[in-house]
Design a protein around this nucleic acid. Structure first.
Lengths: 222, 222
DNA sequence: TGAGATATTTTGACTAATCAAAATGATAGT
DNA sequence: ACTATCATTTTGATTAGTCAAAATATCTCA
């Protein structure tokens, strides 16, 4: 049985590794910062992960998930995202508050219960924020990679994911109809003003938001 | 924030205290046995509970929950039992397997999520085994106290609760229609044979079970 | 009242996860 | 090639929860 601390490190490492790209080693400092822990703690945990066969650790180089570790990370992601869907679709919680809840629940839900949740929800492929849910076998669809800050203009697009867990941002996005599934068209992008103006299918008025916010809203061809 | 270990001790203490009756102190040995822990561990935890204001601890006498502690215990019971209902009614798990699951989940479900579960289930008053669910305010109905091993004969009775968490026993009970809500009539009780014979509303044949098993099935007037 | 049995408490040790701070290694820039 | 800087690792300490085993208190019964 793995501790939930170990599970958290593995999950975080997965994200850091994805950000670093292509099986790069993640430096201990990065991992420490991501886990809000001192560097020494990250080092000792790096060794622990290696002992558990979940990662490779090279002194002064960093850590990298092993195939085992990646499998675990994907399993955690599946749990997390299915739980978020349950909380929103069945229990009616707001999408802005489910991340924190799921963060706790993902460590104690059994495989059996998870399967039931999956079935009850009709085997969903994405969570409330649009993030893809890995399959039970550990396969995850490639998520949309273009944001409103860089997409083509004058072309109808579907919002695929909103990549920010901050409740305030999520509430803002919801208030303005910028949730997964919504269709929008960027009418103008002004690099000097660092702003993006767009037309939302449901509303007649134009809406402008800064590129920093726009970069968090991922789209795909409608 | 209280650790889940503390929550577990408080819950267990609540049961031990109920078994001892009337605000009696629970000896450390009892608590240790109930928690499957050495006596020394129970002693040190007793002091910890006292420090947290959850119990009174008197050396060589035992521990007893404080009003605070009782409130917490009832809260844990509410969580546990509502979660069991969710697992059975919404997720379709078997009543024999939900106890273990709930044992984990009860420590990480937030109050908000619990309220949603309560509402979704329509504010149920008992869990799948028939145990009463305390209200949010901490009030719990008095559970049925007469078992098939001691009830009146030749009188139709409703099964109110089945007091055993062992999956094997629960599966047995279910297989023979001895679940909360079922109507049965004891036709005969044989003290020498240590057996109880009963007629189940749904089935024509008589059914006999030993008093040890019968004592786990609590009934109330139909 | 004293001896033995039994329950409880104490003590010392262990593990996982953490921090602070000291030690060490690597890097880059003159 | 030397040194200043920065990242990493080590070391020693802490906390919660646990055990084993030794010490102590209480109870019972003769």
């Amino acid at each position: 049985m793995l501790s939930s601390t170990v599970e958290d490190y593995v999950k975080r490492l997965f994200f850091e590794q994805a950000a670093a790209g292509e099986g790069q080693m993640v430096p201990m400092g990065k991992l420490a910062a991501a886990m809000s822990v001192t560097p020494g703690t990250a080092t000792s945990m790096g060794k622990t992960l290696a002992d558990l066969g979940l990662a490779e650790y090279e002194p002064r180089m960093g850590v990298r998930l092993s195939p085992e570790g990646e499998k675990l990370a994907l399993k955690m992601l599946r749990r997390h995202r299915l739980i978020e869907r349950l909380l929103v679709d069945i229990l009616g919680l707001d999408w802005s508050e489910v991340h924190e809840e799921a963060e706790q629940l993902e460590h104690v839900i059994s495989d059996k219960v998870l399967d039931r949740i999956d079935a009850l929800l009709g085997h969903p492929t994405s969570d409330p924020h649009g993030d893809p849910i890995p399959t039970a076998k550990g396969h995850m669809a490639q998520p949309a990679a273009t944001s409103l800050a860089e997409c083509a203009v004058e072309m109808p697009l579907r919002i695929a994911r909103v990549v920010d867990q901050d409740p305030l941002f999520l509430q803002f996005a919801h208030r303005h109809g910028l949730t997964p599934g919504a269709i929008v068209t960027v009418t103008q992008r002004d690099d000097i003003a660092a702003a993006v103006t767009l037309l939302r299918e449901a509303q007649p008025e134009l809406f402008t938001l800064g590129t920093h916010a726009a970069a968090k809203i991922m789209v795909e061809p409608a």
